[in-house]
Simulated scan of single mutants.
Amino acid sequence: MKKLMLLSIAALAIISCNKETSAPEKMKTAYVDTSKLLEENTEAKDIEDKYKVKSEEMGRELRGEASRFQSEAAAFQQNAQLKGQAWAQAKGAELQKREQELSMKQQAMLQTLQQQSGKEMDSLIKRIKTHIKDYGKKNGYDYIYGTGDAATVLYAKDAYDITAEIAKEINEQYKGTAKKEEEPKTEEKK
Rank of each mutant, 00 (worst) to 15 (best):
K97D: 04
F76W: 08
K133G: 05
Y143W: 11
V32S: 06
A75E: 08
T42F: 11
R127Y: 02
K157C: 07
S103I: 04
E65Q: 15
A73C: 06
S71V: 11
T34A: 09
T147W: 01
I125M: 13
K91R: 15
L37I: 05
E165W: 00
Y155P: 08
G146N: 15
A66T: 05
K126G: 11
T34I: 06
E43W: 08
Y143F: 15
Y135I: 09
A156F: 02
G146Y: 15
E39S: 12
Q116I: 08
I162M: 09
K157H: 13
Y160A: 08
E40K: 07
A44D: 00
S117M: 13
T112S: 15
F69N: 04
V53G: 11
A151Y: 10
I125R: 12
A159F: 03
I166C: 07
Q77K: 12
T152L: 13
V53F: 07
A93E: 12
G136V: 05
Q77C: 05
Y160L: 13
A108K: 01
M104K: 12
E56F: 03
E57W: 01
Q106H: 08
E120P: 02
G118W: 02
T163D: 09
G84K: 01
A86Y: 07
L38G: 07
M109I: 10
K28R: 13
A108P: 01
A44K: 08
Q106I: 00
D142L: 03
R127C: 02
G84C: 05
K157F: 09
D149R: 11
N41T: 09
D49C: 00
E43H: 03
H131L: 14
Q96R: 09
A90P: 00
A151M: 10
D33Q: 09
A88D: 04
I162K: 06
E99F: 10
K157N: 14
Q100V: 07
G59P: 06
D122N: 14
Y155L: 12
S71E: 10
N41F: 04
M58R: 10
Y135K: 10
E56M: 04
T163Y: 07
Y135S: 10
Q111Y: 01
K105T: 04
R68Q: 14
A88E: 04
A159E: 14
I166Q: 00
Q85K: 05
A88T: 01
K119W: 04
